[in-house]
């Protein structure tokens, strides 16, 4: 098991809360929706899978996309696989995704270029991730440099 999440359920709880915030954020969510793609994140240690659908109409009103925790049948346009710890640090703005690919820590496939275009869009969320952890009472998971 990795350093930050004790199990898959804990990972889903945290990412679920965070993504719920992001996908209804008018500034970030609206820009994400422009990508018009389905992204699948595959995590290891703990094993988990999260799909973000920015292509189909959102399932909930007031949201710019839909996310699914766990395996789902929606076909992904692009996928990315990495250790959950690496992702956790990434959302704090502490990991360079290009370096992650160069070192083989992150594996990707599909319309990678479409996902890369989202990097500038999600940059503001790096400040929101620690805030989300704090709101959840999980200050223990906040990573500093």
């Amino acid at each position: 098991m990795g350093k930050y999440y004790k199990d898959t359920e804990e990972l889903y709880t945290i990412y679920g809360y965070f993504l719920d915030n992001i996908l209804k954020d008018p500034k970030i969510g609206s820009k994400l929706a422009k990508a018009g793609i389905v992204i699948k994140f595959v995590y290891t240690d703990p094993d988990a899978e999260i799909t973000i659908d920015l292509k189909n109409p959102p399932k909930k009103e007031g949201y710019y996309g839909t996310f699914y925790l766990g395996k789902c049948d929606i076909e992904a346009d692009v996928w990315s696989s990495q250790p959950a710890d690496h992702s956790h640090r990434f959302w704090h703005g502490l990991e360079n995704p290009i370096a992650g690919v160069a070192k083989g820590i992150i594996k990707q496939g599909g319309k990678v270029t479409a996902m890369l275009k989202l990097l500038p869009v999600i940059k503001p969320t790096f400040q929101q991730f620690p805030i989300a952890l704090k709101e959840m009472g999980r200050e223990d998971l906040i990573v500093t440099k």
Binding site: I98, V101, Q108, V112, T113, L116, K117, L119, P120, K123
Partner: peptide, 20 residues
């Protein structure tokens, strides 16, 4: 990954990312 960006969008493919 870099080749894919270059192929699809050219060397200006990451201008947006560089800008940020």
């Amino acid at each position: 990954i870099i080749s894919q960006v270059l192929h699809e969008f050219g060397s200006a493919g990451n201008l947006e990312g560089h800008m940020y």
